[in-house]
Each structure stands twice: as C-alpha cells, then as structure tokens.
Design a protein around this nucleic acid. Structure first.
Length: 484
RNA sequence: GGCGCGUUGGUGAAGUGGCUUAACACACUGCCCUCUCAAGGCAGCAUUCACGGGUUCGAACCCCGUACGCGUCACCA
C-alpha cells in the first residue's frame, strides 16, 4: 500500500517556519515512496480563530516551495472534502462520536464549567493535582439521549479507563509509555456540535487513509489518547513521526507571536524559497553524506526519518544567509539575471549593461535585498577622500596613484573597445611599463572611477560597464582632485 | 504539581561500547590567493560530550540518580 501523509495546518495567520518544516518532512516521507501521496487538509474547526486569507497564504507558500500536494481542497481527491468545516456539515464527526459511545470509548457529558471549576478547587485545596472526574460517566446512554432530546446542552467526552498503560512506538522518539490514569477525558464534540481538533484529527487521518502521521512533538503527550480512540474503533494505528521544535533561542520556540520571521518575511528579505527549504530541512535532520546543498528532489532521495533529531534546533539566520548565497552563486547567469533584474533597477537608474552588472554582483550577494545598495556608485560619483589611495596591502599612496592614473588615462583615451578582454589586455601592460605591481595600477583606477572603498567587481569590469565617456570623465575628475 | 520528552562547541550536527587525541558545516580568528570587497584554498577554534555515581579490560555511546530545559494537563489547534 502506498504511503499517505498529510499536512494539516489551521488557517490562523502566517506560515511559520516550524510549520513549513513539518510540511516539508511530511512531503519527504510521502515522496520517499514513488507511489506516496501527500495531502493538504485545512483544520478550521475553531470558528473563533479563523483569519481571512490565511488559507491562501498556505497555498502560496506550498506552491512557491514546490511542496505540491496530491490531494487537497484546491486540487480535489477521492477522500474529500479536505476542509474540516465542510466535513462537519455532513455530520460525520458526530456520527463517529456516537459510534464511539456505543463502543464504550466515549460518553455524553452535561457538566458545565462551574462544575469543573468546583472540582478543581476542591482537589487543589487538598493539595492534589487536578484531574476531572466526570460524574456523567455513570449516566446510561438512554437517559443521556432523553436529556438531549429535551434540549439540554451536552458535549461528548472520551472515556478512558483508570487502569493499565498505553504505549506506542514513535519513529523518532522510540517507545513511549504512559499510565492511563494520567490521561484526561478530553472533549471530542463541543457543545456547538463541532468536533475538537483532537477528535477530527483522528477521524480524518483514518478516513483519509493516512499511514504516516508527521507532526510537532507537542502532540507526543496526547498521542496515547488518540491511540485509545483508534483501538476502540479497531482501526490500524498509523506510524508516528514526531518532530522536535524549531527554536528562536535556547528557551523559545520560533513563533509569529514573538515577531519572528515567517516564510513570507524571509522571502521579502531576499531569501530564495529553495534555500529556505534547504535550510530548514537541515534543522532537526542530518543527511548521511557530507553534503548540505539540496534541491527538493535531492532531499526526497536523501531523507531518512532515522536521522531526525530529538532536541530543538535553533534557527540560525547566518547559516541561512550563507546557504542562500550558495544557491545564488550556483545559478546560471541568465536565470540569475531574470531573478535580480528588479533589484538592479532599484539601485541603478543610469543606462548601463544590466547583465554585466548582474555578473559582478552574483559572486558577492548573499541576499537579494542587499543588491541595490552595492550598486549606488553607478549613478553617483562624488569627490572622495584621497586618503583612500593609501593602501598598505596594495602598496599604494596618492603619488603612486597619480602616476598610474595618468598612464591609465592615455590607455582609456586611445582605446575604443571597452570590452573586458580588450581593457584587460591594454591595462595590464601598464604595471610592467611603470615597474609596478598590478595592484598599484588597478587599485587606484578602481578607486578613481567609483569613489568607493569597496565595490563589487574590479577596475576592469567596472570600466567596461561604465563605458569610455563616463570612465574618462571620472578619471579626469579624480586626477584633477589629486593634482589640486 | 502530575505525566512525557530532551541535554555533544556560539549555532546546525556526526557519533549507537574500542577505528574519537569527538567528523562535517555556519559563525569567529589568522594566513594564502587576489585590481578592492566577496568567492576560493589552508590553519586554528569542545583535552571533552549537563552533573554525580555505577556496569565494563574499555563509555559521549549501557544503567541509576540529580540538575536544568521543553512539552502537556482547554468546549485552541
């Protein structure tokens, strides 16, 4: 039987990095199997927390990451509907809850909050830790149904025996065992008739034929309760793959609430979806081979549940930045140019060869947003501090610079072909002629035509982009400044 | 507080009883290369695996305890 996994977010806002990683892992687990199916299910049973547009963000994010789902609200499938609120309408959860009651896995409960609070106070006053003891458990199904017919409000709670233990094997955490008496009898159907997440999740996972449940480890504690439901129904329990959290720092999980970056934020900051995905795959999972740059397809090949770690991993923006730079540098120049065109336009208004500019930027930018500011010197050329000509490493000073610049001026004046090749050939004759080092000639030129201490590209590349007229104009200006 | 889970460097991590005087990568530092900056190359960066016991000829790896952290105990998901 083919593997089936699902990503089941609730549409409550933005796509968090931790969420996205869970989606990625679920996708990878499924796709490891050539026949594997990856499903998107929207869990919106909490009507109070719905956020408009949140589902679109989920679709957009998945799409831009290449996490293509085989079944879901937007693409359909044989196990729909894929939105829980649509499923509620069919009365499916209530039906299953009733079945569960008859299988002694659940019971009607008429207690209100005051009643529960009273119990809590009593127990806590005795110094005990609170555990709700539901008096409604002893009500017969017939009596309960009568009370419901007469209009009494009710919920359906899971029934859990005090005796025994429940255990299961998690693929990453191993065997987990808990005493049943520590499990509380959670609500399955709320008084508004909606199922709780806990219940809907179990029912849907089963009905959708999910074979591998991939989710955050915050569900580790409630998994035994879910398994008790599976058992009451005599359903097969899925494989569980609980993932450790993605942390902001040692103590806090990464979360939108704390203002931590979401996927969208990172994209806006100039990170590639591919690089983000690549990076978060490495948070909590490590490949067997000594390699860190992975495309999605390569991840599918390399992924192995056995190498998912057990402790929280801190999100390190520095490493993401490095990885992003690697992705950028590895692109072919045409693709790269198309990608950063807009960023170049932001930084350069003048009429220069943007493709050449892309080329000098590619080896230097780690994120897209830093590109415009690297390029300002193309449009603006101002007088600069001649002290910049003093460079120990280049063995230059203003006097040497002036000599170089004057010699270079002749070359620039005589030359009409400003291609890099041609400039390279002619300019590199100078050091020999002047008995200088390459740097003593080229460093001052670069400075003289850019006015900046650091620039992407060297003197030759930049002169080629600036062209004869602009290069000479700036050169003359700089020579005049030195002489003056 | 009960229960569950976790703890290898600043960070991600490899490691599953001897090959570990603990890979690899990011960050950091230094050197080299070089027309600046990047990129690239090289080197340094945990005498030690939270702590304390135990098992063993031998432990980061097995057992017990302690500490700390996280999760969970909602008509939230």
């Amino acid at each position: 039987m083919a593997l089936r996994t699902r990503f089941a977010p609730s549409p409550t806002g933005y796509m968090h990095i931790g969420n996205l990683r869970t989606a990625l892992y679920a996708y990878l687990v499924a796709k490891k199997d050539p026949e594997g199916v990856f499903i998107l299910r929207i869990e919106d049973t909490d009507q109070g927390r719905l956020v408009e547009g949140a589902t679109d963000i989920i679709y957009d994010t998945m799409q831009s990451c290449g996490l293509k789902h085989d079944e879901g609200p937007d693409v359909g499938g044989d196990y729909g509907p894929y939105v829980q609120s649509d499923r509620v309408k069919s009365g499916l959860y209530l039906d299953y809850a009733k079945k569960l009651i008859h299988r002694h896995g659940a019971h009607y409960c008429f207690c209100d909050q005051d009643m529960i609070d009273a119990q809590r106070e009593l127990q806590e006053a005795r110094g005990e830790s609170f555990k709700f003891n539901d008096p409604c458990k002893s009500i017969s199904i017939e009596d309960a149904e009568k009370r419901i017919e007469s209009g009494e409000k009710f919920v359906i709670r899971q029934t859990i025996s005090e005796e025994g233990q429940t255990s299961f094997d998690d693929e990453v955490f191993g065997k987990i065992t808990v005493d049943n008496e520590t499990l509380d009898e959670q609500i399955l159907i709320k008084s508004d008739g909606f199922p709780t997440y806990n219940f809907a999740n179990v029912i849907d996972d089963h009905l959708m034929g999910i074979t591998d449940v991939v989710r955050g480890m915050e569900y580790l504690s409630s998994t035994p309760k879910y398994n008790l439901i599976y058992e009451a129904f005599e359903w097969d329990i899925p494989r569980y793959i609980h993932c450790p959290p993605v942390m902001k720092d040692e103590h806090n999980k990464l979360s939108k609430r704390n203002g931590d970056a979401s996927f969208q934020d990172l994209v806006q900051k100039g990170y590639l979806p591919e690089a983000i995905l690549n990076y978060i795959a490495l948070l909590g999972w490590s490949p067997e081979e000594d390699k860190e740059i992975f495309t999605l397809d390569e991840l599918v090949q390399a992924f192995n549940v056995k190498h998912i770690g057990t402790s929280g991993a801190i999100f390190d923006i520095d490493k993401l930045t490095w990885l992003n730079g690697m992705w950028l540098r590895n692109m072919d120049i045409d693709t790269y140019y198309e990608l950063i065109k807009d960023y170049i336009d932001q930084g350069v208004k003048g009429d220069f060869d943007k493709k050449k500019i892309a080329k000098i930027v590619q080896q230097r930018a780690n994120t897209l947003v830093e590109i415009p500011e690297m390029l300002t010197f193309f449009d603006t050329f101002n007088e600069f501090d001649t002290d910049l000509y003093n460079n120990k490493k280049m063995k230059t000073n203003p006097e040497i610079a002036l000599t170089s610049l004057k010699a270079a001026k002749e070359v620039f004046e005589q030359l009409d072909d400003y291609s890099e090749e041609s400039l390279h050939n002619e300019l590199l004759k100078l050091p020999e002629k002047l008995e200088m080092k390459n740097g003593q000639v080229l460093f001052p030129i670069r400075l003289a035509i850019t006015g900046q201490q650091f620039t992407p590209g060297g003197a030759i590349e930049i002169a080629s982009i600036l062209g004869k007229e602009e290069t000479l104009k700036r050169l003359n200006q700089s020579i005049a400044q030195l002489e003056g």
